[in-house]
């Protein structure tokens, strides 16, 4: 198991390295650079431009810049913002908790909604309830989550005359205000994710319910409840966990738009704010963190997978 995890970590580092190189090169290859932007209105001379480039370390070749950045990153130094001069690690630690909290709340909500509905759908296989739940879940997958966010805001404002409190406050500062600010975007993200969880749970439970060991469990006189929750659901959880790992990408992507609608200062809105001003170090670090989160979640999922199912662990 340890060897497996180490192998996966090495793979993760390689993928992250390629990712950083890709972002690094693309950002610098595209027209428009930070120096031109910063000196846009001042009518700066060639010398001034060169001086600023040297100051920001942008006069070196792209491979040299990449090398410098990686050497720093390994030591935990992600550079400074080219605009504010604030250390990037500081910017990230300010923004990351918002996005993390949003993602975790949505995953929990999605599981709480998705798994029971999926089980009901499987147990009531091919009945009216099943058809209704299946169509609803495809619907849930098709509604853009930012539209859902707008609808929720509109309805709450018009019907209950309530809007989420303005000015973001972290959970530690004020849990009640924080909850009011986070719950709506979390619901919007959770609905899409729960729709795919419903579909996966339904087909996985159905498959297990048709297997032979379930017949054995039934024949020894177990209650239907025990058959479904202790045996069928438990055996289907492996595929549901895998699905959640793969869907984390969509979830993290969705945070950008919802952070923008609900004015939350998260990592997604950080990229959105800094990419057009070409603040290279900040964008690089933020995209890298998103990639690392995705890889980490999938590593955890794979380890859980092996832990739940011995056949995979030993292969």
């Amino acid at each position: 198991m340890a060897e497996y995890i180490i192998r996966r970590l090495i793979y993760g580092v390689i993928v992250l390295f390629i990712m950083v190189t890709f972002i690094f090169v693309v950002m610098r290859a595209v027209p428009g650079d930070v120096v031109t932007l910063q000196l846009a209105d001042s009518g700066a001379s060639e010398e001034q431009i060169e001086a600023l480039e040297a100051e920001l370390g942008l006069d070196k070749s792209i491979p040299a810049q990449l090398g410098d950045w990686i050497v720093g990153a390994v030591q935990g130094d992600l550079g400074m913002s080219l605009w504010s001069g604030q250390p990037v690690t500081e910017v990230i630690t300010e923004r990351l908790p918002v996005t993390l909290q949003l993602a975790i709340m949505s995953i929990i909500l999605a599981i709480l909604i998705g798994i029971p509905i999926g089980v009901i759908s499987a147990v009531k296989h091919n009945t009216f309830i099943d058809h209704f739940l299946r169509i609803t879940s495809v619907g849930g997958l098709s509604i853009p989550n930012f539209w859902l966010g707008l609808i929720l805001l509109t309805v709450l404002a018009l019907v209950l005359n309530w809007i989420p409190p303005l000015g973001y406050q972290s959970f530690l500062e004020n849990p009640i205000v924080n909850f009011q600010q986070m719950i709506l975007p979390a619901i919007c993200l959770a609905i899409t994710l729960s729709a795919s969880i419903v579909r996966m749970t339904r087909s996985a439970v159905l498959e297990v319910l048709h297997s032979e060991f379930i017949r054995t469990v039934r024949s020894k006189g177990a209650k239907e409840r025990v058959v479904i929750y202790k045996h069928a659901l438990r055996n289907s959880l492996v595929s549901v966990i895998t699905l959640i790992g793969l869907q984390v990408g969509y979830l993290l992507g969705g945070t950008v738009v919802l952070e923008s609608i609900f004015s939350l200062p998260g990592l997604g809105s950080l990229i959105f704010e800094t990419v057009s001003s070409r603040d290279y170090p900040v964008v690089q670090a933020a995209v890298l963190i998103f990639g690392a989160m995705f890889l980490l979640v999938n590593l955890i999922v794979d380890v859980m997978y092996g832990w739940v199912d011995p056949r995979i662990r030993n292969s």
Partner: peptide, 19 residues
Amino acid sequence: DAIMAIPALILALFIAALL
């Protein structure tokens, strides 16, 4: 793998905002 590990909308945002 590296491209797919970046959440789709984040990557789209990154490229579209650059261009």
